[in-house]
């Protein structure tokens, strides 16, 4: 494989990886505060992408307004999901909670499918077509935009958790629920808020994917990639999610390219990340940045 091909694989890997990172942050926020493993992350991305599509195409909203509106609608959606469904299964066995989120994913996918059908649709964006050359490799504006936007969004979230009062309350809840309650944090509200944030973050991830690939039900498949990402980064680390996302993005792209050119084998992309996952679980189950106090026997 030529060096040019390798570089371009890395570039697209970084772009996809930054979207993985966004989604993984949503996953980690939910896990940290409520200890729920959310298997519906990909479906939340897909819902975000479709709402944005609906607002721009059917309501003729300008792209940025639609972007903003989608964020608001998804925040509400996350809030409702937590209040109506997840609130009722707090303290249930882990397998039940996993099944609830799986069921949620099925429902969301079915609703979107029933309304919009299965065709791939193009999300109209104000981003011009074309590419700039970075170090001799052409990088399209769409790629640049989604990378820049996800970096920006991640910085915004980091600032939110670091400096805002609510962010502080969320961190307090995740480190010790009872102590947080004793200090007057409304833990129930924090649970709902973390779902709202996760929904917004995944919706943004979904919209970014949509600006590159178009919108179809397949967007939800990206959600499964959060597992390798968060395991590599460390389940309870937001920094880990960001770094892990980019690493997995690059790694699966390069591995896919290598398998295609060396072994003439298609479709390794989707497995590469999971092979990494198994290796990480065997060698370093707490990931790169996670806390070491993982339960072990």
């Amino acid at each position: 494989m030529s060096l040019d091909a390798l570089i371009s694989l890395c570039v697209s890997g970084i772009v996809v990886g930054s979207v993985y990172a966004m989604t993984a942050i949503g996953f980690v926020v939910i896990y940290k505060t409520t200890r729920v493993i959310n298997f519906a992350q990909g479906e939340l991305m897909m819902v975000g992408a479709y709402i944005c599509l609906f607002l721009t195409v059917d309501y003729k909203l300008p792209f940025w307004a639609a972007f903003l509106m989608t964020g608001i609608v998804c925040a509400l959606l996350g809030y409702v999901i937590e209040r109506v469904v997840l609130r009722r299964v707090i303290g249930d066995p882990i397998v039940s909670v996993i099944m609830i989120t799986l069921g949620l994913g099925i429902v969301l996918k079915a609703i979107v499918g029933a309304i919009f059908g299965v065709d791939v649709r193009v999300l109209p964006t104000p981003i011009p077509d074309g590419a700039v050359s970075i170090g001799g490799t052409p990088v399209s504006y769409h790629y640049l935009f989604s990378m820049a936007f996800s970096v920006l969004a991640m910085c915004a979230f980091a600032a939110f958790f670091r400096w805002s009062r609510l962010g502080l309350a969320m961190r307090a809840t995740s480190s010790d629920q009872q102590a947080a309650m004793a200090m007057g944090v409304n833990v129930g509200q924090i649970f709902a808020l973390s779902w709202a944030i996760a929904c917004v973050v995944s919706a943004v991830g979904g919209m970014l994917i949509a600006t590159i690939n178009g919108v179809n039900l397949g967007v939800s498949a990206f959600g499964l990639k959060v597992f390798p990402v968060v395991i590599l980064g460390g389940l309870d680390s937001i920094v880990g999610a960001a770094v892990g996302g980019v690493l997995i993005g690059v790694l699966e792209n390069v591995a896919d390219g290598v398998f295609k050119s060396v072994f003439d084998l298609d479709g390794f992309r989707d497995v590469a990340a999971f092979v990494v996952l198994v290796l990480v679980l065997m060698i370093r189950p707490y990931g790169l940045f996670g806390q070491h106090d993982i339960e072990r026997i």
């Binding site: 493993i37 882990i94 397998v95 996993i98 499964l224 597992f227 390798p228 395991i231 389940l235 084998l265 298609d266 479709g267 390794f268 989707d270 497995v271 999971f274 092979v275 996952l277 198994v278 679980l281 065997m282 189950p285 993982i294 339960e295 072990r296 026997i297």
Partner: peptide, 28 residues
Amino acid sequence: VPSVRLKGLYLAIATLAAQFILEFVFRS
């Protein structure tokens, strides 16, 4: 075998990986 070291959600994710790896083997 990973279940010896991993519990709960880690095992859930490990078996999810098993699903995808086996599917890849079936296909390839």
